[in-house]
Each structure stands twice: as C-alpha cells, then as structure tokens.
C-alpha cells in the first residue's frame, strides 16, 4: 500500500477554545486534531462537542486533514463524541488508549454504523490510533493490522511513561524500544508511524533534537501541542537537495514509462519498485510544501489510471 499523504505534523487543538479552533485553517500543519479528550474537562464535554461540530461544519474550504480525538473507549463519552462529530464530516478519528486490536475493531464497527446512517461511503472515516501503555506496545503488531481504516499509529510517551512508573527523562532513552516496536509494526502493516508530543513548548532546542532523532528512526510525523513547533518539525523533515533531485528523476522516469505505455519503470538501469515510488512522492510533496520545488504530483501519472 502506498502513502502519498504527507503527515509530518499533527497539531492538537483544544476542542473547547474558539480562539484556537478558528485558526485551524491557517496553521501550516499537515493535520489538525481537534481534541475532545485531555484538553476538555469532564463538565465541558457537551459544549466542546457542539463547538467543534459547528466549527467543522463551517470549515468547508479544507486545506489540511482534520481529525478529532474522541474520548477513550473506557469512558462514557466516546459514543456521544462520535454522534455529534461525525455528521460534520471530519477526515477521521484519533482514538486514544488503543492498547488492543479489539479496540480498533470496535471503533471500526461503530464508524461503519455511522457511515451507513449518514449515507456516506464505507471506510470514509479514517483512524489514527494512539498506543499509550506497555501492554499496547506489546500488542502493537496485531493492532497495526486490525482495521482497514487505520492510516497511522501514534505513540503517547506521557501515558506510557506513567505506565512504566518512571519520570520522563527528556533524553528519551526509555522510549527506544517502544518507538522501534511501533515503527516496525507500522512498516510491516504498511501504515504510517507518528511520534509522541514534546510537552515543553518553551524548549524549542530540545524539541528540534527530538525531531532529528525521530527522523533518523524513520517516523513519518509527530504529534504537536503548540503551533510554534510546526515550522521546526518541517524544517527538520525537509528533504535534502539530492533526495529531491533523485525523486524528480524517479517521477520523470515514471512519466516516460507511462507515455511509452510500458508498465516497467527503470532509472539508470535499475528497476523502480513501489516503495521507491512512494518515497519519491513523499519527498516531492514535502519539498513542495516547503516551496523547494514547484512540481505538482499528478496521481494518474504516478499510479496510472484507476483501472490500469
């Protein structure tokens, strides 16, 4: 499965704050996640659902992916969250505390019910789920394959660290194993891997170091709690000039092959397979978003026509 969708930056926006919600269209993140969970006190869940719903309904000129973090399946809130939010047509749901594949299957079934009720395409609502505990990490390989809707798995270091009963060191050595396990599970399942938030918004240097670290590990993106973190992350994730050059060559080769009607694409005598194409597309999307290239990616050229 290919993932041309760029999900470098996933910004949490509190669901009960108009001053933040209405800035969603101008935040330069790839994804915004409206938060009905941790950012909203229990007594305000009803008001936050209404506010978020009305905001999403009015946000018709969508210029980024929009997810809503609902409350966990262990709370009395998540059904009302879905019932209020889904009619406004977000792109998907961010599911917290997804520690077992059954959690995903359960939410998948619910989303199907809502899709039938709302009369929209089955599978329309995507899921990004967060793994937040030791048990969740141990189950992650199955979780990553538990729903067709799952486009990415996120990792929540805050909860995981609490679960381990340790203080969270900023250096992150205690996160080596869960990050690697989550990443491997995502890659094996062909979905994206999203790293945890950096909680200290005032420490931009520490944040940058962590971004560099997770880029080396291979994460596709990172959840963010402050809009100021977006540019730093994008800067770190920016492709190098030689990567861009190579990606442009790959796309040219594909275009050439399509024009000649051949299904086999090769570059410099080497065959170009699907993962190379996917990577080239990601590099170019990322470069384009940063103004480093002005090539538009034509999906039909890259992947052929739908029936091809």
């Amino acid at each position: 499965m290919l993932h041309p969708r760029l999900r470098r930056s996933l910004l949490y926006v509190p669901g009960n704050m108009p001053s933040m919600l209405q800035n969603i269209p101008i935040f330069p993140s790839d994804v915004c996640i409206i938060d009905l969970e941790d950012a909203v006190p229990r007594t305000e869940k009803d008001a936050a659902r209404l506010l978020s719903r009305r905001f999403i309904e009015g946000y018709t000129q969508r210029n980024k992916e929009l997810y809503v973090r609902i409350n966990g399946l262990d709370t009395p809130y998540f059904r009302d969250d879905l019932a209020q939010i889904l009619p406004a047509m977000p792109d998907g749901i961010r599911l917290p505390k997804c520690e077992h594949p059954s959690h995903l299957r359960r939410i998948d079934d619910l989303l199907t019910e809502f899709e039938e009720y709302l009369g929209c395409e089955i599978g329309r609502f995507k899921i990004i789920a967060s793994v937040e505990s030791a048990q969740g990490i141990l189950n992650v390989n199955e979780t990553a394959r538990a729903s067709e809707r799952l486009v990415a798995l996120g990792f929540s270091a805050e909860d995981y660290t609490a679960n381990l009963q340790i203080d969270r060191p900023k250096t992150g050595e205690h996160l080596v194993v869960p990050r690697q396990l989550l990443l491997m599970a995502c890659r094996a399942a062909g979905i994206q891997a999203i790293d945890t938030v950096w909680a200290d918004a005032s420490d931009q240097e520490g944040f940058r170091r962590e971004c560099e670290h997770i880029k080396v590990l291979g994460f596709d993106g990172k959840s963010l709690i402050n809009p100021r973190q977006i540019d730093v992350l994008h800067d770190v994730m920016a492709p190098k000039p030689e990567e861009i050059d190579y990606a442009l060559q790959v796309v040219d080769a594909i275009r050439g092959a399509r024009e000649q009607g051949t299904g086999v694409v090769s570059l410099g005598g080497k065959m170009i397979d699907a993962p190379v194409v996917a990577r080239a597309v990601r590099v170019l999307l990322s470069a384009k978003s940063l103004g480093l290239v002005d090539t538009d990616i034509d999906e039909r050229v890259i992947y052929g026509d739908a029936d091809a």
């Binding site: 800035n23 101008i26 935040f27 809009p227």
Partner: peptide, 11 residues
C-alpha cells in the same frame, strides 16, 4: 510575539 498568528504573519 509567541502568538502563532503573529509568527505566521512574520514568516
């Protein structure tokens, strides 16, 4: 400013 709008404008 630390306001995200102000920073976006500045960029």
């Amino acid at each position: 400013t630390t306001d995200p709008i102000g920073l976006q404008i500045a960029k």
